[in-house]
Design a protein around this nucleic acid. Structure first.
Lengths: 256, 256
DNA sequence: CGTCGATTTGACGCTGGTCAAACCTTGTGG
DNA sequence: CCACAAGGTTTGACCAGCGTCAAATCGACG
């Protein structure tokens, strides 16, 4: 597919583990960037750094050094509100960019924590902008990635404004499944990387309410849950519930 | 209505009404951009287009043609959820950029509506990126503006996760005041550009709950409301309530 | 001055937050 | 390999905050 070009000296071993060979390539920053340009990008990427469970990539007040891409494992980004409660802003799966929250001020306002053992690639931000300024397609891709982040935030908003707790839970599971699929994992059988508490803090609900939501979905035969292991039995119904077709679950009262 | 662009010759009269002379300059895209570079930016800006009450700048599905900056008046951006309910994503005051939601896909996902008579400047997006690629400081400023938009979305999230309805209302009023101040208006005496319903759909509450929140704040002597006219009597108390110091309002129950 | 929409106020019931306790899962050490 | 401990998760009971329906009042604009 991509023609190989051999400009200067290329370390073959390194290339093998490179962005060009990365299974996430089409989801990650390099998507749509030509092979020639990709090489420039590769020079500044620090690949596959290991991150232990609970380890932080950055924290509030830390200066923006670089953007991270989850390579393996999952992350959450959180802020502490003034009463000291943790609020979960988002979850980040492989291929998703983390750290752009500092673009506005140059300083991070949230913290990013690994939910389990994970690996990330890091791209120094100043170098990224420098390189991007010279490579239109990378520039454009950078914009796209930023835009996707905004889209995700807005989806999150959409979930929070939706009042019914069970709808939020259904929407969360559905959305997670969709995202897992794009990473090449099963969307119908997976292990949640985050705790009920994390989910609750993401959905703006009490932990117990999330748990009850899961139980309810199970009782209705839509999913099967054992702790963090989830199996989606009726994907269609889950989709419908996530998209607001509530009357299907039980015709309790009509809605406009 | 749309002025013909004459890129080569520079009209002095036009310059007078230019970004360089604009009172919003320091809040808008040109902030931090040098005079020389500003001139380049000016060539592509279409300034001071009038927008009538209820008129839309763009709508879901419309291709990204340009970014808008509110010059005068206020806007709201909204999406329709699958049950046809309007959800308010944000309000936009003078100096704030509108339309970057389409960066991810090139297509707008929300619509932007003028809340009253308004004026906007428009910058064709492709030309903006072209020019920005050549002007590092503009490039950086663009990033900053985008980042600020993300920050605002996250603040919005912060409001929605906060469960107490009255806290949301207080936070909303406080935040609006702060933003009005940065535009050079009074933060203690203003007229709301949006309806209670818009506020409700922004805060994820019922319209009546918002109204009751206002009434409650008034009964407590924090503000004075008459329709859309608001006067903040006790800014400190409002700030404290917005920041979660709820026990001050009435010591009903202790909170952790 | 009248009409229409926006806002306020009231009454009522359900959803979901809170407190509490039981249960299950995972990891550790014997 | 099993026992124990420590979180994580589920379930139950209770009730208050807020959504819903309804009606009155207010304010803006013709």
């Amino acid at each position: 597919m991509a023609a190989m070009s051999a400009p200067d000296s290329i370390d073959l071993a390194r290339l093998r583990r490179s962005c060009a060979k990365c299974s996430l390539q089409q989801l990650c920053l390099p998507a749509g960037v030509s092979a020639r340009e990709l090489e420039q990008l590769e020079r500044i990427v620090q690949r596959n750094r290991h991150v232990g469970r609970g380890e932080r990539l950055f924290w509030p007040g830390a200066p923006l050094t670089g953007v991270f891409v989850a390579r393996e494992g999952a992350f959450k980004t959180t802020v502490l509100d003034e009463s000291g409660e943790e609020q979960v802003l988002g979850f980040h799966l492989p291929g998703e960019v983390i750290g752009l929250d500092a673009m506005g001020t140059g300083v991070h306002r949230c913290e990013a924590v690994a939910l389990g053992e994970a690996q990330v690639c890091e791209i120094p931000f100043d170098q990224l902008t420098t390189v991007a300024a010279q490579l239109p397609s990378l520039q454009q891709q950078l914009m796209r990635v930023i835009g996707q982040g905004v889209d995700r935030d807005q989806d999150h908003l959409g979930v929070l404004v939706r009042r019914q707790a069970n709808e939020r839970v259904a929407l969360f599971l559905h959305g997670l499944g969709e995202r897992l699929r794009t990473v090449g994992l099963s969307s119908s059988r997976f292990r949640l990387p985050m705790s009920r508490e994390d989910i609750a803090r993401y959905l703006g609900l009490a932990l117990e309410t999330v748990s009850r939501g899961f139980t309810r979905l199970q009782d209705d035969g839509v999913i099967e849950v054992t702790g963090r292991q989830v199996e989606v039995l009726d994907p269609e119904r889950l989709t419908r519930m996530a998209h607001g077709a509530e009357e299907e679950r039980n015709a309790r009262r009509g809605r406009a």
